[in-house]
Each structure stands twice: as structure tokens, then as C-alpha cells.
Design a protein around this nucleic acid. Structure first.
Lengths: 242, 242
DNA sequence: GCAAAATCTTTACAGTGTCAATATCGAGGC
DNA sequence: GCCTCGATATTGACACTGTAAAGATTTTGC
């Protein structure tokens, strides 16, 4: 948030000898040159450790608690350590979102692999979509919190694109993996946008609590799942041109 | 963000005499006891002025720039002045979101008032929905940024509920204005959820830039409007039970 | 073996929300 | 008229935040 950096005079400190206790280090942690419990100056695998820590913080404290310093604390390193690995908060958060997209893609691939008629498979996919978001609400929120992300980061862009291609495939539109500029008919585009809008809209409204009123007023025995089911049933989702 | 408030000793200052220049005050501003240009200690209508300022900041700097202090600066008052009127940032932001919902409701009512067959009217409403969000992206984002809102605030709850009721009416389900616990059949609920999910999902994906790839690959001459049109055309949106 | 690069810590600074104390003004009461 | 009292606004402080610079330490390349 520092908008106007300024030059400051150098400061000289006495070299300190006491080793500060480093919190949160796993007992069988990775790569320790010395056998003692003293935390080494170099972590050895801080990049991945920070991402793990960030995921923990996100699940525990939500998006609002996901700060650089909180992640550093969780990982047991100084608050400025993440900078070297991710540049800034956007960098860390973007890499975390990439992990989220990869998790999501795995879940969707599993749901799409079932052997069932196309219409059943489409519903299974939609349910898997919502289920992932319900299981990882913070992560899903992060994946679509565009202002905190740098979508040009290769890892994030790749994972998000794969997710999009998977969605297009589920609607019956197969896209080249690398053909970023492949043409798209209006009907195909509409089919993709419709499916995505429907399931993403339902998910965000659900996570934001905007469907609570509807859910509460539903006949007894109904849940989010039955509502989603009824919603999808009324949507004939066959590929365009058939 | 102060988590642990602490008691501090009192500080005594010399009374200052110089009047600091108050920025951003309109020339023909409201309620001035003196004819001079000096800003009076009491603003007179700070509550509304802060909301206006907040709207300006939101449109100019987006959601990220919408801070208490930025709003106070915009209104030309001290950084702590908003506290008295809104309690905290959530309070101010929630009142602003209520204004957004009211603006939105006006726009939707206008779109629903046209004389046309039901299907045409449904499409006109959907277009008006997206158009509002495109015209006020910051505001629309704020209205659904649940973690920054206090939905129990009467003004916000009321405006948001009215918006929801309007949506239900557009889908052919009429709800009592005050009947918060009125039962809802699964089919009716699904119709509401489907329409809302579709249009809200499309809107958020669009504002978040997630549809850029699709839009770029569309045949020449197509825009967001034609895509939305094609999407809605493929959705038979008649009220359930018919 | 040693210089350079990579990694991590420390310190500093601007900006944020919120609270407490103070200052100023407006409206009633006498 | 004056005077208190409550409402309104300012000032100051504190605990946070992200980020930058500089120093400390370790690893790596040659």
C-alpha cells in the first residue's frame, strides 16, 4: 500500500546471536543440514511451504484473513520472506488460485468420467462443480476474485484455461488445448456461457447466502441439492445443432 | 483492523486557531450560517454528503479504493468523521449498497413496464439487469460483496428484499411483500433460482473478465448483447405449471 | 576456496480502521 | 440575555497491513 517510496539513511545494527524460536515448523520438516532443532536460516522449501500455509489460512480465516503477514506467521518465517518467492501479495494469491483451479479440474474430471447418459453426466458435473465450491468456499471465492489475481501468470492462466476448456467440452464443444484464438459460433458460445453462468451464478449466490431465503421456504426435506436438481431438470441442455 | 484496543493516557493539546482549508466543498454548498467561504465546524448534511462522496470514490477508484479515509477526504472532512454517522466501514458500505439496490430496482421496474409479450419482457429485463451492472460495475460488485456488508441493516435488507421480490415476480411467482416465511414450491423456487443464477452468473463472469475469451472468439459483429440474446433465446423461460 | 547469487531477517514507512479524548456548534431552558 | 447539554467534527494514537531497502546467512558456481 506504500504508494510513495522514499530513500532512507542506512541503519547499522549490532549482529544478534540469539536465535528466535521459529514457530510452526513441522518435526520431520524438509531438508535440515543440522540434526538440532534450531531452525536454519534457510528454510529449504519455503515456496511450497508458503502455499501450504496460505491454503491453511484461507480455510481457517477466510479471504479476509489471507494476508502476506498472516501467511508468513503460519509458515514461521519473517513477514518479508514471501516477497522473495512471490514478489507481492498478488503473486502469492495468484499461485494459490492456480492450485485451486488444478484441484477443481481434478474434481471435475472425476465427475465427467462416470459412465452414464449425457444428460445424467451433465447433471453430475454440475453437482460436482457446486460441491467443490461448498467444500472449498474460500478457495472458490479466491479463484474468481479477479482484482486480487494476476491472470497473466502462466501457472494461473494455464490452470484457468484448462478449467474453461473442460467446461466447454462438457457442453459438447471441443476446443484445441492451445488454440487460444479458435473461432466459435454464436450458438456454441451461447451454450458455454449459459452453462457456466448458470452453475457459477448458483454457486456464488449460494456461497454469498443470497439463496438462504429461498432454501428456508422450500417444502420440508429439500436441500441445496434438490433445488439444484430441480433447476437443472428444467434446463434442457443438449448440445446446439442436434 | 484494530483487534486489541488498549487504554492510553490522555493527551492535552494547545487549542489551535488556524482554520484548515476544507477541500472539496461545493461553492453553493448546503446550509451555511455565515456568508464567508470558511468551512464551518459542523457540516450540516454530512450523512448524505458522505454517501455521495462514497459513490464518487467507488466509481472513480473501484472497490479497492473505497476506504473510510478516502471517503472522508472526498467529502473534505477529517478521517474519523464518518464514524459518527455510520459506526464503521461496514455501516457506510452497507448504506451505499442499499442505494445501489434502490437504483437497480428503479432500472428493473422501468424495464418491466414495457408493453410486450411475456417472453420479450423477460429478455428486456435480463438485458436491463446486465446493463445496470455494466453501467455501475463497482456498485454491482459491492452489492454482492457479502463479507463487506451487514445485511441486517434495515435499509439494505429492505432494498435487497424488494429486488428479490421483483425478480420473483418477473419469473411469474408473486410474493407478499412482507411475508418473509411464505412457503415456496420446489418448482417455483427452481424457476427463481434458475433465472437469478443465469443472469447473475453471466454478469459476474462478464465483469470479472472471464468471458473475454469467448467474446473475442465470436463471429464478427457480435457483442455482449448478442451473446446474451442467444443465451436467453435458448432458454425457454415460461413460468412453471404451464 | 572464494566470490557471487540466492535466501531470509530486520527495520522503516505510508496507508488502513477504530477508539479515546478534545473541540466546536446548535438548540433548549432559565 | 446566558448557560448548559447533546450532537457533531477533529486530533491523536494504536494495531494492523503491504512493500521497499539494507544487512545477515547460506548455498552455489567456478
Amino acid at each position: 500500500m506504500a504508494k510513495t517510496p522514499s530513500i532512507r539513511p542506512a541503519v547499522r545494527r549490532a549482529p544478534k546471536t540469539a536465535v528466535p524460536a521459529r514457530a510452526g515448523r513441522k518435526p520431520g520438516g524438509p531438508r535440515q543440514s543440522k540434526a538440532s532443532e534450531a531452525a536454519p536460516y534457510h528454510h529449504g522449501d519455503l515456496h511450497d511451504a508458503l502455499l501450504k500455509a496460505a491454503e491453511n489460512v484461507l480455510e481457517r480465516d477466510g479471504l479476509g484473513g489471507l494476508t502476506l503477514r498472516a501467511v508468513a506467521r503460519e509458515a514461521g518465517v519473517s513477514h518479508a520472506a514471501p516477497t522473495h518467492h512471490f514478489g507481492d501479495l498478488t503473486g502469492l494469491v495468484s499461485e494459490l488460485a492456480a492450485i485451486g483451479f488444478r484441484q477443481f479440474n481434478v474434481a471435475m474430471a472425476a465427475a465427467g468420467a462416470i459412465d452414464a447418459p449425457p444428460l445424467m453426466r451433465a447433471m453430475a458435473r454440475a453437482k460436482a462443480y457446486v460441491a467443490y465450491a461448498q467444500a472449498h468456499p474460500g478457495m472458490y471465492g479466491l479463484m474468481f476474485r479477479t482484482e486480487r489475481l494476476d491472470m497473466t501468470r502462466p501457472s494461473l492462466h494455464e490452470a484457468a484455461t484448462a478449467s474453461f476448456n473442460g467446461l466447454a467440452g462438457a457442453v459438447g464443444v471441443s476446443l484445441q488445448q492451445q488454440g487460444d484464438e479458435e473461432a466459435l459460433s454464436l450458438e456454441h458460445a451461447a451454450a458455454i456461457a449459459k452453462a457456466w453462468s448458470l452453475v457459477h451464478g448458483f454457486t456464488t449466490l449460494l456461497l454469498d447466502g443470497r439463496l438462504n431465503d429461498i432454501l428456508r421456504r422450500l417444502p420440508k426435506g429439500n436441500t441445496v441439492e434438490t433445488l439444484l436438481d430441480a433447476m437443472l431438470r428444467s434446463t434442457v441442455s443438449r448440445p446446439p445443432g442436434t
